[in-house]
Design a protein around this nucleic acid. Structure first.
Lengths: 131, 131
DNA sequence: CCGTATCCGAGATGATACTG
DNA sequence: CAGTATCATCTCGGATACGG
């Protein structure tokens, strides 16, 4: 199949270029933990340890690191309350929600088609797997 | 903001679970090179070296590896013609196109909002950067 | 509760050379 | 052209310990 190539728009940011900063942000968003963190926060604000439980398997270190990167990119808002014990809530910014929606559309679609993916893998492994 | 949590559907695949195979596929799709490869192929079929030029910065090895993973997941079709010199075309399967569309929606949205992201970074670094 | 600091191994990545 | 093989490197990520 050949899809009509969209007329070249000269967008200022092109993720296909090595040097474009959008590539870095895409990696934060789609990275192993970034995607799951955004997905979790799209449902509502969560505290650090709630988030950790929701994103099954993430370590404290990686969650902390992921949150910092997303906060720096303006996708996540960190709200610390000066209480004791400390309470910190994380939530998405409006931009974060826009991004998370598109990410979740991808994730849900993939989840819905996993049977096909798994079937494709079996076929592939049957033919090439023995090698 | 708190969004109403969607009623728990018991989907068979939940990417938030550590053990779910959908998480692995999500990583193939959104990985550093997987996302760009799918994005490039959504416009039409490409040969190996065409792809390599389009996905700026990818090495032969990583492109090869990425293509194998996507082919195995049933997202990419590899068509080799037994000519000399060899000619191999890569294209997306229907499922691959579905996934790529959602991925491109994310990418384009991000590209369109990079000014906001960059501005957020400057604000963040001004406050916390010195530390 | 909410993190940061440090160490260390595994896997990702890149450069180069080589094959059909 | 279309890859594979090998090796060096380097970052990611987990475990642990510690601090506010």
């Amino acid at each position: 199949m050949t899809v009509e190539r969209a007329p070249e728009q000269d967008l200022p940011y092109d993720v296909f270029s090595k040097a474009c900063p959008s590539r870095g942000t895409l990696e934060h968003v789609t990275g192993r933990w970034g995607a799951l963190t955004l997905g979790a926060l799209h449902e509502g604000s969560l505290r650090f340890n709630e988030l950790r439980r929701r994103v099954d398997g993430v370590s404290e270190k990686m969650l902390s690191q992921t949150l910092h990167a997303l906060e720096r990119d303006g996708l996540v808002l960190r709200e610390a309350q000066p209480t004791n014990p400390p309470r910190v809530d994380y939530e998405l910014t409006p931009l974060g929600h826009e991004v998370a929606e598109r990410l979740l559309a991808l994730i849900r679609h993939l989840e819905g088609r996993m049977d096909d993916v798994l079937a494709a893998r079996e076929r592939y492994d049957e033919i090439r797997g023995g090698r």
